[in-house]
Amino acid sequence: MHGEYKTPGGKLVVVDFDQAEGKLTGVRVSGDFFLYPDEAHADLAKALNGLSVELSEGEIANTVRLGLRRDAELLGTSPEAIAAAIRRGLAAADRRPGQADGAPSSRIEL
């Protein structure tokens, strides 16, 4: 699955992922944003892998925010933008049921 979100006046964030048993797996966050230090990039995938696909955008954003190390600086994008990209990726997968990797058809929006 693939979702993108461009922060108005800011940068693009792209999230590629799979889902298995209702959870996000193999999450990769990419884009033309800035993130300091470099190592904080691994915090994003760590925070997102295993999250329930039924979480709301706000819950995903808060999880990302808490998962980032304390001294991390994310510029041009945001936990909210990452969450929006994931929601879009999930929504697009729902619209293409043949390619949805077993996404439940009756997923509940929280």
Binding site: V14, D16, R28, S30, D32, F33
Partner: peptide, 9 residues
């Protein structure tokens, strides 16, 4: 490419 960009994208 920037540090965090995906080649394919």
């Amino acid at each position: 490419l920037g540090r965090f960009q995906s080649v394919r994208n």
